[in-house]
Amino acid sequence: MKTIISARRLCKKYGAFVAVDGISFDIEEGECFGFLGPNGAGKTSTVRMIHCVSPLTSGTLIVDGQAAHVDNRAVKQQTGVIPQEITLDSDLTVRENLQVHAHFFAIPRREARRRIDGLLQFVELEKRRDSKIDQLSTGMKRRLLIARALLNQPRILIADEPTTGLDPQARHLIWQRLRQLKDQGATLILTTQYMEEAQQLCDRIVIMHQGRILKEGAPARLIAAEIGREVTEIRSAADQDESLVAELGPLARGHERAGDTLYFYCDDGRPLMKKVLELDLPATVHRPASLEDVFLKLTGRNLVE
């Protein structure tokens, strides 16, 4: 596998505020790489530096063999961006949005027409080609953003929280499309705060928090390493912790209290559940461990602001 993006001690400051605090990572060609983190973790700042719209404060960032910087048109030429915000041109129709964009990438007119027809089909908007943007639903707008990001047939596709605010149907359609693109060989960079999204799409993820990378790895491996296979949640008052931990602790890999819930992490939950039944604890949930547990364990289960 060839490394297509490589960052070393990458920093981004806005005035005195440190958004990205000296992170290093490598992204392989053809993989789906996810940046996970709560709001303000530095995900968007990082990807904006990758696609050359935001200058680095310090460190190095190599994209496809070239240093990333705001005047690097060559990197932008082969990057597609699905932005977090809907940045469609509301004065234009669906089709015109794509036509205008094709010119910015210097795609010849006839080739552009061919690609636009194909992409409108790909995102299932061919019937809305002459609609104005404000006649589209949020899901359609997001799909159009995907089509727009693909016009230049990018080798690197950046999706910055691509499914925020979508209903489940629209979200699944977008996931399918992104997976299809990855199968076609594009390198996919995803930022998200939805763990399910990361688990669905990413080969490897980094979990970011306050501008730093806390953990890096394949989702399944991170879950196994940090949490185990199963999680038992017990709703209970905090003053019961001592006795519960004394009883259940030896049967689990670890435990954690957050708010009204005590979490036990284990690889095999059966002995622990047997004990829970013995103790007759009614408000208990037993479930498989997920990326969300890793994420919450690392970034803290309490609200970050």
């Binding site: 696609h51 719209v53 705001v70 005047d71 048109r73 932008k76 030429q77 990057t79 961006v81 932005p83 915000e85 809907i86 940045t87 469609l88 041109d89 509301s90 004065d91 964009h101 910015f104 990438f105 210097a106 727009r148 230049n152």
Partner: peptide, 13 residues
């Protein structure tokens, strides 16, 4: 409309 944001993400400087 955030039009400039989408412009500068393309090879347009």
């Amino acid at each position: 409309e955030k039009l400039y944001d989408s412009l500068i993400a393309t090879p347009v400087s």
